[in-house]
Design a protein around this nucleic acid. Structure first.
Length: 456
DNA sequence: TTAGGGTTAG
C-alpha cells in the first residue's frame, strides 16, 4: 500500500517534470526512486512515452517500450494509444495505422480513443470512405462514441471536401442531444470558410455566440483568414489587432496568416512590418514561421538571405518540409535561375519527397512569366500529372504571349478533362480571340464552355 | 494520452 502510494506520488512528480520538458531530470528522479524502493509502473512509463514523443522524437518515445519490457512492465492500451496519437501528430500516418494493427495482433482490445485516432489518420491521408466505415463501426458497434469521435468526423469531412455532410451530421447530432464544443464550431466554421460558404459560416458563428461561447485564438485566426480570402484586408487586420489586445498572438499562427495574405497580393512592405512586429514580440519561430519568412525574402528579391536562413534552420535541427523546398524553388525561378530550380527539385527527390506538382506548376508559370513560353509548353507536354492549376497557368501564359488559338485549344482539352479553370482566364481567351479577329472561334469556345458547365 | 487555426502554384 505504502509502495503503491509512493509510486503515485512519483508519477505526479514525473508528469510535472515532463511537462516542463526536463526529461533528464525525470530519468534521474526515477533512478533515485528505485534506489529508495519506489518503483515506476506502467503510468510512469506511459508519461515518459508521451514526453519523449512530444519533445524529442517518435522513435525516442517508441524506444521507451523496450525499457518497460526490460523492467518487467507490460505496455497497456494507454501506451499504445499514446504512440498511435504521437505518430498521427507527427504525420507518420501509415506508422500510426500499422501500430493499430499491432495492437490487434497482440490481442489488446482497442478502445474508442484508438478508433478515433485511426479515423483521424484515414481522413488525413485522404481516405474519407474508410474513415466513415470506422465511424459506422463505432456507432453501430459495442463502443460509445466520445465527443472527440464526432469532432474528428466533422473536421475530417470538412477537410476532405464534404462540408454538406459535415453540416448535416452536425445538425443530426444536435437533434440527438449532442452539445457542440468550441472545437466543433471552429472545425465547421473553418470548413465552411474554405468552401467559400460565407453565409452559412456567418450563421454558424452567430449560433456559436448565442451558445454563450467566446471565440478563442483558433476561431479568430479562422475568421481572419476568411476575411483575407474575401479581400477584406482592413477587416482582417482589425481582427489581428483585436487578437493582440486579447493576448491571442502568443504564437506564429495569426502573424503567418496575415503575412501570407499580404505577400499574395503584393503588399510586401506591410508584410515586412507584420514580420517585424512578430519578431519584436519575441515569438519563437517554428518551421511554418520560417517558411513564411523565406517566402517574404524571395518576394523581396533577397534570395541570398533566403538561402542563408535555410542553412540556419537546418543547423538548428529543424527538418525542412515540402513547403520550404517549394518556396525556394519558386524563389529561384523568380530570380531567373531555372537550372537551379530544377536542381533543387531533383534534390527534393533524393530527400524522399514524392512528386511535387506545386513546384512544377511554379516552374511552369515562372517560365511563362519570363517569356519562355515554348520551354513552358515542352515542360507541360512532358508532365505526366497535371491539375487545374497546370492548365490555368499555361492557358494564362499563352494569352500573355498573345497565342490565343493555342490557349483556346488547351482550354477545350482542359474542360474535357473536367478541370475547373478560373473564370478570369476563360474570359481572357474569349476576349483575346475577339481582339485578333477570330469572332467565330470565340463564339464556338463560349458554347463549349457552357456545355462543360452543364456536364460537370 | 485523441480532435480545431498558420506556410507553396493559377
Amino acid at each position: 500500500m505504502v509502495t503503491r502510494l509512493s509510486t503515485k506520488i512519483l508519477n505526479i512528480c514525473i508528469a510535472s517534470i515532463c511537462k516542463s520538458k526536463q526529461l533528464d531530470k525525470a530519468e534521474t528522479v526515477i533512478v533515485d526512486g528505485i534506489r529508495l524502493g519506489v518503483f515506476p509502473d506502467v503510468v510512469t512509463y506511459n508519461t515518459l512515452i508521451d514526453a519523449y514523443c512530444r519533445f524529442v522524437s517518435f522513435d525516442a518515445g517508441y524506444s521507451v517500450l523496450y525499457r518497460m519490457r526490460e523492467a518487467g512492465i507490460i505496455p497497456d492500451l494507454v501506451s499504445c494509444n499514446t504512440l498511435i496519437s504521437a505518430a498521427a501528430r507527427k504525420c507518420f500516418l501509415s506508422k500510426s495505422l500499422d501500430l493499430f494493427d499491432e495492437i490487434l495482433q497482440r490481442g489488446i482490445n482497442p478502445d474508442v480513443w484508438s478508433y478515433n485516432i485511426v479515423m483521424h489518420c484515414l481522413f488525413k491521408i485522404g481516405k474519407p470512405d474508410e474513415a466513415n466505415r470506422v465511424f459506422m463501426d463505432i456507432v453501430l458497434g459495442e463502443f460509445r462514441p466520445s465527443p472527440a469521435t464526432y469532432n474528428v468526423m466533422i473536421n475530417g469531412l470538412c477537410k476532405n471536401g464534404y462540408v454538406n455532410n459535415a453540416l448535416s451530421l452536425f445538425r443530426n447530432l444536435q437533434r440527438h442531444g449532442f452539445v457542440p464544443q468550441v472545437l466543433t464550431y471552429n472545425a465547421l466554421i473553418n470548413g465552411l470558410c474554405k468552401a467559400r460558404r460565407m453565409g452559412t459560416a456567418r450563421s454558424i458563428l452567430r449560433e456559436f455566440r448565442e451558445m454563450g461561447y467566446e471565440p478563442n485564438a483558433i476561431t479568430y485566426t479562422t475568421v481572419m483568414k476568411c476575411c483575407f480570402q474575401c479581400s477584406k484586408f482592413e477587416e482582417g487586420l482589425e481582427i489581428l489587432y483585436e487578437m493582440r489586445s486579447k493576448g491571442y498572438t502568443f504564437d506564429g499562427f495569426a502573424y503567418c496568416t496575415v503575412v501570407a495574405a499580404l505577400i499574395k497580393t503584393g503588399r510586401i512592405e506591410e508584410a515586412n512590418e507584420i514580420i517585424e512586429q512578430m519578431q519584436s514580440n519575441g515569438i519563437e519561430p517554428d518551421l511554418v514561421s520560417y517558411n513564411t519568412l523565406i517566402n517574404l525574402y524571395c518576394r523581396q528579391g533577397r534570395l541570398e538571405d533566403a538561402l542563408k536562413l535555410l542553412d540556419e534552420i537546418e543547423k538548428e535541427g529543424l527538418e525542412c518540409d515540402k513547403y520550404t523546398h517549394t518556396i525556394i524553388i519558386h524563389g529561384l525561378c523568380m530570380a531567373g535561375n531555372f537550372v537551379g530550380a530544377q536542381q533543387h527539385l531533383n534534390y527534393m527527390n533524393t530527400l524522399g519527397f514524392g512528386f511535387n506538382l506545386v513546384a512544377v506548376n511554379c516552374i511552369l508559370d515562372d517560365l511563362g512569366k519570363a517569356g519562355h513560353i515554348d520551354h513552358a509548353m515542352s515542360l507541360f507536354e512532358a508532365m505526366e500529372v497535371k491539375d487545374a492549376f497546370t492548365y490555368t497557368i499555361l492557358v494564362h501564359n499563352l494569352c500573355r504571349a498573345r497565342r490565343f488559338l493555342s490557349a483556346s485549344k488547351l482550354l477545350v482539352s482542359c474542360l474535357k478533362c473536367g478541370f475547373k479553370i478560373l473564370r478570369s482566364t476563360q474570359r481572357a481567351v474569349i476576349d483575346g480571340l475577339i481582339s485578333i479577329g477570330f469572332t467565330n472561334e470565340s463564339r464556338k469556345l463560349k458554347s463549349k464552355i457552357r456545355l462543360a458547365r452543364f456536364l460537370h
